[in-house]
Amino acid sequence: MQDSNTNSGQGLRTADGADPSVLVFGRQVYAVLAKDLLLEVRTKDALTAMLVFSLLALVTFNFALDLRPEVMSAVGPGVLWVALVFGSTLGLARTFAAERDHGTLEGLLMAPLDRSALYLAKLLANLIIISAAATVSVPAFAVLFDVAVDIPAVLGTLLLGAVGVAAVGTLFSAMASHTRAREVMLPILLFPILVPILIGVVQATGLALGSPTARDMPWLSLLVAFDGIYVAVGALVFDFVLQE
């Protein structure tokens, strides 16, 4: 897979040999994303942590909240989302912590790598890993709690939320990796900022599950708007986080 892709970039060069900046940007995003996913496929660090934690949270909620089928349409969306986001922070925390291990972040910073390309690549990598975890935990949720779930619809809603989580999480993970007690700092930074996403996803999922308490609003459009704001702001300020 690697070899065929490196060659495909060659055919796209302009006549004078200089690469158009859009192409350079795309190539850099692709390079970092492919590298991160290859590392994840090899180590499975983030995905394992997220999955196990999310499933464990679902089971724990079952005991803590006495989740009987009749309350699930009202409580279920919250349970599912909280399990997923708490699990996600484990993977998010690794985004930059892993890059510090052998000075690889410095290697990235010394390369002519656009900071926004790095941000976008890390965001996409996180999004893909969170999605992978969600594709397992949503069916598991449906089975464990015997809820009739329209899996594609719920998954789609969760992914819209995951974009916001990945956007803010990638930004804060870069900051938290430099702090003492970084495992503590990331969720403390993340959760208050993400309240709008939490509300949007839980309400939208509630509507999908036919929850009586969900408010009828265009939550999905709102989620898209929130995502847009978070990604834009994240890309704008990310450079400041990295400037050493």
């Binding site: 900051m175 702090t179 900022i193 704001i229 702001v233 994240g234 300020v237 400041f240 986080v241």
Partner: peptide
């Protein structure tokens, strides 16, 4: 630097 970033993101939020 970090808190300046949070000061901006937080207020926008």
């Amino acid at each position: 630097r970090f808190s300046a970033v949070l000061g901006i993101v937080g207020f926008i939020d």
